[in-house]
């Protein structure tokens, strides 16, 4: 479902060139719960946002459901983000002057909110345990509750892909557990592919796909995470800098 093929990303930090990603290739099947792990600055968030068409690689291909995000126009990328991807951020990033329900509905605001979309938002908020807090503003909610609103906002457009960047990074461990429980339940219910960037490996289960990145290289992942044409795939030409299969 997702194919990342030899993706490179470089940019300048001041005058210093930075190679954020160095030839990453991988494959993530539809409906998988995938983790991208690695130390700070390894390039994991960069890869995540590229999957969401928020950033473009310097080189390489990113195919989601057969569509190449790199070749998409700006407008097509907008459509992709609006219709196919849900984002969950570490800092929740809710709009402070909108209620929980309005925050969930915000992706639809420019085109007008339909009754069906509103109903879906209510259902989602109820499913994440906030059915009685639809009209609460973010400042009236705890961190965990705000992240639940963010989960509902990500799922309200029925995306094929949900991307979460350190979703429990600002929560205590108990609340973090609850959030992962909700994420897993919702992912199964909505059959979306979920890709999570995290430092915290305790939420990873044996069934999950794990991609480990270090210094811009994919250094570890189950072989099924690597596309056959990926240089780091066992059947491909050996690439000593990238291959370390099996977690």
């Amino acid at each position: 479902m997702i194919d990342v093929v030899n993706v490179w990303k470089s940019y300048k930090s001041g005058t210093r060139p930075v190679e954020a990603l160095r030839g990453i290739s991988c494959h993530i099947e539809r409906g998988r719960f995938a983790f991208i792990v690695g130390p700070s600055g390894s390039g994991k968030s960069t890869l995540l946002y590229m999957l969401g068409a928020v950033d473009r690689p310097t080189k390489g291909e990113i195919l989601v459901e057969g569509e190449d995000l790199v070749k998409m126009s700006e407008s097509a990328q907008n459509d992709y983000r609006r219709e196919k991807v849900g984002f969950i951020f570490q800092s929740f990033n809710l709009i402070s002057n909108l209620s929980a329900i309005d925050n969930v509905l915000i992706p639809f605001l420019p085109r007008g909110v339909t009754a069906e979309q509103r109903e879906r938002a209510v259902t989602l908020l109820t499913q994440v345990g906030l059915g009685d807090r639809l009209d609460h503003r973010p400042y009236q909610l705890s961190g965990g509750e705000q992240q639940r609103v963010a989960i509902a906002r990500a799922l309200v457009k029925q995306p094929v892909l949900v991307l979460a960047d350190e979703p429990t990074g600002e929560l205590d461990s108990k609340t973090g557990d609850e959030i992962y429980k909700i994420l897993r339940t919702m992912q199964q219910a909505y059959q979306a592919t979920l890709v999570v960037v995290t430092h915290d490996r305790r939420f990873i289960t044996p069934r999950d796909l794990v991609l480990e990145i270090q210094d811009g290289h994919l250094i570890a992942g189950p072989t099924d995470a690597l596309a056959p044409h990926c240089p780091s795939h066992p059947q491909a030409e050996p690439n000593p800098s990238a291959v370390k299969a099996g977690e």
Binding site: G52, V54, E74, S75, N78, D79, R81, R82, E83, V85, G86, F87, F89, N93, I95, I106, P107, L109, P110, R153, K157
Partner: peptide
């Protein structure tokens, strides 16, 4: 700044922000 970035990420176009 962050709000606009989030809105762009969840699918708002540049024209939507401008509007």
């Amino acid at each position: 700044f962050v709000e606009f970035g989030v809105l762009r990420t969840i699918g708002w176009s540049q024209a939507n922000i401008l509007g």
